[in-house]
Design a protein around this nucleic acid. Structure first.
Lengths: 165, 165
DNA sequence: TATTCGCCCATGGTACCCCATAGATCAAAT
DNA sequence: ATTTGATCTATGGGGTACCATGGGCGAATA
């Protein structure tokens, strides 16, 4: 399997390090990532983490915009300014910096959530709350639109698969 | 990686010096910048810092304007008249001049923000405020983008709509 | 002369390397 | 099925190199 799947909660040690789940590490290796790129998610207190391809994809998107309009500038500000590299140490751990803590609210434990081509980092309690919100939204969506909706909507999303515990 | 990424806040010492983040310095070297140019960003209290290519970028923008309009002349004046060199000392520090302070509002601390091919210098509090504005605009953009976005929105991740796959 | 600027070194903190260990997981064997 | 043993994984800690920061000093400048 070369997709990020399932989720796990690990503890931050006294030096501020936390193990990336072994399964995720093997995916990272299989996909040939040498560095991890982490980005603050827009409207949720989580970091999106992936390989350089994640960054490439964003930069391609930015390139489509008129480089002198505000939108392109905003996007670059977001992708470059609110992004960072996470270095895996030799034991497969990352250092949880203030930058990560600030956006996520992480203090002592880190939740890792597989999302297919990338994964996310959460503060465990907030993840739980968010999971319930997502579930409620999906339920409402299905009830509103009838039976065929689930398949049609989840086509480009991966939410239904990745979020379930 | 040879792009300016992530952000950091460093303190100005009693001599008016501040360290450029080590990661940025390595990018400067990798990209072969022999000198750093600092230009006033157009509509924000920040300095754009980069190599010669930074000037090219600005001039390209000016070229887009009608040369008979005042805008082009204003821009040229602004860019060429208000640029400086930033000299890195042996320990990778730059001196924060009054010129920098004036445009940015910097007093005791400097925020460095990666922007891909260049980086920016901000007063930390103003940066934070600007970041919130940018995020709000991007969020609005995504919500306005239409139906395909719904899934991407719960996926919570990026500027682009189709997040996974 | 007074001030600034560039170069040098010192230091505390942090990030990274290496190794150790307890618990979990899995396999084979009884 | 239970037990036993080998491997894998998360976690802890020691040591080291790097980095941000502070300060000294001499040369250039005003």
């Amino acid at each position: 399997m070369d997709r990020f799947l399932s989720n796990a909660v690990n503890r931050i040690d006294s030096k501020g390090r936390v193990s990336v789940p072994a399964h995720f590490r093997s995916v990272v290796q299989k996909r040939g990532f040498t560095e991890l790129y982490a980005l603050r998610a827009l409207d949720i207190p989580a970091m999106d983490v992936g390989g350089l391809d994640l960054l490439d994809r964003y930069e391609e998107r930015i390139a489509q915009e008129d480089p002198f309009l505000q939108t392109a500038d905003d996007m670059s500000f977001f992708v470059h300014g609110d992004g960072t590299f996470l270095k895996l140490d030799q034991d497969g751990r990352i250092t949880v910096t203030d930058f990560l803590r600030e956006h996520t609210g992480i203090t002592t434990d880190v939740a890792f959530v597989g999302r297919g081509l990338f994964f996310q980092i959460w503060e465990p309690e907030r993840l739980k709350a968010h999971g319930q919100e997502v579930r409620a939204r999906l339920l409402k969506l299905r009830q509103a639109a009838g039976s065929g909706v689930t398949a049609g909507q989840s086509a480009g999303s991966g939410v239904t698969a990745g979020q379930s515990e």
